[in-house]
Design a protein around this nucleic acid. Structure first.
Length: 824
DNA sequence: TACTAAGCTCTTTTT
DNA sequence: GAGCTTAGTA
């Protein structure tokens, strides 16, 4: 048990005497690790099993290079996530000290965005180019699809963006795509013949807006290196040593970029594990790791197979799952650690019970073993699963922290201010302009905006160019003075950029745009929190401005770049809190916890329903599961609920096939399934006739669709308005082990989506009462939900909320101002 | 043009 | 549940 003590890092500079080629500071490493560290020249591939000290090896390798006298700024270390980059930087700093600051270390996106800023002009971009996040990209696509008069049911933004992304990750640009008859034919066959045109228009619009999306950062880097020999040469010589972490997760562009950069010095070291490749959905190509040998015939390969992290039981159980995958590199992960406890398998009836059970175990283990909260992690497949656990932890008084999910920078109000700032830095940024031009309201409505967009495409200039010379376009009529005012304001912001730091500009913009005042005046609960978020953003900018550590200039453009690419960067003011960690399995990569709960192990949820279509996708899910299992240092709990409540309907689930794939000798089945209890968890409202439903669906909608089956018509289906639930037999009776082929989700059996609305019908004769005197404990009647008791109140009638426990419908939070209720 | 309520759709994972 | 659209009203 290693908690909370941390392994001591050795200082390589304390003792430089080496014996038999291995410097003493590497004494703490095992032999393959040492070999991998000192083999600094030429191509190297390190196959590192889960928990085999991979980060340690990279850290020491870089420290070793520095010790040998290589300049920090000649070393390029690429990671996949910001979390990994940050972790590595910290560890290298603790070994190598201040020099580490000069390393080129970060995610592919952040490093190459930095390169592109320097070289932007070469590819026709301004150096202050904007980085579009997914939301911006989708919004732009939506606009384009609308403009082209295409059916947005056929051309779904998600699908289109996904395909564009896939194309770009494979170096297929829009103009190539337009010329590929076979691809167009394919699209036509799939009844989306206009895809290539959308792609092309999207590319043009981004370029015109001086904007790159995430994929463009990589694509443009590749184009830059490929088309400009001198530039390529410069960077090739600059980076004498290149290291790529999580190589199995690189996609084709990333592969091509690293190959290009390493072409001169050939000092490239990639570290990865095919068994942990979990990003295929975004184009990761496991072939990259499998092909490394072919690309570099003289490659030296080191295998790290000893797991230091987990117990024998955990390592072996994980291997028993992953061995079901067909495609893998030969490798035997083993550990010298103790046998350890068996993996506890816990069956629950419902989501709520599952969450409570986890919270109970945490409390119990804390008491027994004196673990802090931060020894525990709860891992799930999708972010939306966190809710039940939050609630259960809160009830037990366990402090927790959710990683991922909606980031601070994606919140509406934060994005609003950021959009002003983006527009200030890059006025051609179309998405930013559309977002802020009428917020706060300036009387520039949809009609005007549509005219602006039309004009901008007619004249082939940016939206902003039309706005700033609104006067020359009489068709803008009454909007002209409003547009001029807006343009003037923006120009005054732009004028500040030259001589002011990020914080000063941002504060000025927040005030002068009227954004701050608008939020300040909104005294509702949400309004206050929005105001606080803006203040917090400004604080963040101030911190950035005052941060002496970073070498970067404290300008607004630099701040915006950080925000665009470091979205998961924690706002670390409460870093020292002792919290239970909640996160997706993807986010947990590279972390370890003494006690891990893997929850929601239900068929169609994990493995995800969407992963069941092909063998490859199922294999990826299996790798994900493998990653999750080996996350645990000592204890592991697998949790599943076989039915979930969503919107009043009971969704029967089956335990995940992965549970079946674990060799049962590693499992502790002693925690017997409890009898189902359906009464306590119900927090939705009824409205469905649950008996009917569609059989064969097997809970196809774990994500909580309103699949209450054939619900009653809207005019008062009183018989089951309370939503009392009977177990029904929606399942198809198939057991996970029944077939060795992926069970296809039974889409064929699925009737068309019910088009029903979820709300129980409102009583047309209902008369609203005065709620100004509402107190906790009052009995109330609601026009939809029937009678209930007030559990808690916050705020006043204008701004407040009430939590009411309805007799038949369960607990609901209601905004008082809009609550159609009367006190009984 | 602005605002609200009701209705409908979507929901894997990340940069 | 959230986000978005639509319809209706001010």
């Amino acid at each position: 048990m290693h908690w909370p003590d941390q392994p001591n890092e050795f200082n390589p500079f304390e003792n430089n005497n080496s014996n038999n080629g291995i410097p003493p500071f590497l004494d703490g490493l095992n032999e393959p690790q040492q070999q991998a560290v000192i083999q600094t020249d030429g191509p190297v591939m390190i196959i590192a099993g889960a928990g085999s000290g991979k980060t340690r090896v990279i850290t020491y390798r870089i420290a070793y290079l520095l010790q040998k006298g290589v300049d920090a700024f000649q070393i390029l270390a690429l990671t996949f996530t910001n979390k990994a980059a940050k972790e590595m930087r910290n560890r290298i700093e603790s070994v190598a000290g201040r020099q580490a600051k000069n390393l080129w270390m970060g995610t592919f996106h952040s490093i190459f965005a930095r390169v592109l800023r320097q070289e932007a002009e070469r590819i026709g971009y301004p150096s202050n180019f904007t980085i579009y996040d997914t939301e911006d990209s989708k919004s732009l696509l939506k606009t384009i699809i609308k403009e082209m008069n295409l059916d947005d049911k056929v051309y779904k933004t998600n699908m289109v963006l996904g395909r564009i992304s896939m194309a770009k990750n494979n170096l297929l640009e829009a103009h190539h795509y337009l010329q590929k008859d076979d691809l167009i034919a394919q699209d036509t066959a799939a009844s989306r013949p206009k895809f290539a045109e959308i792609f092309s228009e999207y590319t043009k619009r981004c370029f015109k807006a001086g904007a790159m999306d995430f994929d463009d950062i990589l694509l443009n880097t590749y184009k830059l290196l490929n088309n400009h020999l001198d530039v390529c040469n410069k960077w090739q010589h600059k980076f004498k040593y290149i290291m790529v972490d999580e190589y199995q997760d690189t996609n084709h562009v990333q592969y091509m970029i690293t190959k290009k950069l390493a072409a001169v010095n050939q000092n490239i070291c990639v570290v990865g594990d095919d068994a942990q490749s979990i990003y295929a959905f975004r184009g990761a190509n496991i072939q990259n790791i499998l092909n490394f040998e072919r690309d570099y015939p003289e490659v030296k390969i080191y295998k790290l197979e000893q797991n230091y992290r987990s117990t024998k039981n955990i390592v072996n159980a994980a291997s028993s799952v992953i061995k079901n995958n067909k495609k893998q590199l030969e490798k035997e992960v083993w550990t010298a650690n103790d046998e350890g406890d068996k993996i506890k398998l816990i069956h629950n009836s419902t989501e709520g019970e599952e969450a409570r059970k986890v919270a109970d175990y945490i409390t119990e283990i804390k008491l027994r073993e004196h673990f802090p909260n931060k020894a525990f992690a709860i891992l799930y497949r999708t972010n939306s699963q966190s809710r039940a656990f939050e609630e259960a932890l809160r009830r037990q008084g366990l402090d927790y922290k959710i990683y991922g999910g909606m980031s601070f920078y994606q919140r509406k109000e934060v994005k609003d201010l950021l959009s002003y700032l983006r527009l200030t830095v890059n006025p051609t940024d179309e998405e930013a302009l559309k977002r802020v031009i009428n917020y706060p309201g300036r009387g520039i409505g949809d009609t005007t905006i549509n005219r602006l967009i039309l004009l901008s495409s007619q004249h082939g200039v940016a939206l902003w160019d039309i706005v700033k010379s609104a006067r020359s376009f009489p068709e803008l009529s009454t909007a002209i003075p409003k547009l001029e005012n807006f343009a003037l304001m923006m120009q005054s912001f732009m004028a500040m950029l030259e001589s002011n730091n990020a914080f000063d500009v941002a504060t000025h913009v927040a005030k002068q745009s009227g954004l701050l005042r608008l939020l300040y005046e909104d005294k509702s609960v949400e309004g206050v929190s929005r105001y606080e978020n803006i203040t917090e953003l400004l604080n963040g900018i101030q911190q950035f401005t005052e941060d002496d550590e970073s070498e970067k200039e404290k300008t607004l453009p630099n701040f915006l770049e950080e925000v665009a690419l470091y979205t998961d960067e924690e706002k670390d003011k409460d870093q020292n809190r002792d919290t239970v960690s909640l996160m997706t399995i993807h986010a947990s990569k590279g972390l370890e916890f003494p006690v891990v709960f893997i929850v929601g192990l239900e068929e169609n949820l994990f493995p995800s329903q969407m992963a069941l279509h092909s063998r490859a996708e199922l294999e990826e899910e299996r790798r994900l599961f493998y990653v999750a299992i080996t996350r645990a240092e000592q204890k592991l709990f697998l949790n599943y609920a076989t039915s979930r409540f969503k919107y009043g309907s009971l969704i029967p689930c089956e335990p995940s096939r992965f549970i079946e794939e674990i060799d049962s000798k590693f499992l502790d089945m002693s925690i017997v399934p409890k009898k189902p209890t359906f009464d306590e968890d119900f927090d939705g409202f009824g409205g469905g006739n649950f008996g009917g439903g569609y059989s064969g669906n097997r809970g196809g909608g774990n994500y909580g669709n309103r699949q209450g089956g054939n619900r009653g018509n809207n005019s008062g289906d009183k018989s089951n308005a309370g939503g009392y639930i009977q177990r029904n037999s929606m399942g198809n009776g198939k057991k996970p082990g029944d077939s060795d082929k992926p069970t296809k989700p039974s889409t064929l059996l699925q009737p068309k989506r019910p088009t029903s609305a979820p709300l129980p019908p409102a009583d047309p004769n209902f008369v609203e009462g005065d709620l100004s005197e509402l107190k906790v404990g009052d009995r109330v009647q609601h026009q939809r939900f029937g009678t209930g008791t007030v559990q808690s109140l916050e705020g006043n009638f204008q701004t407040g909320k009430a939590v009411v426990l309805f007799d038949h419908v369960g607990e609901k939070t209601l905004v008082l101002k809009f609550a159609k209720m009367r006190i009984l």
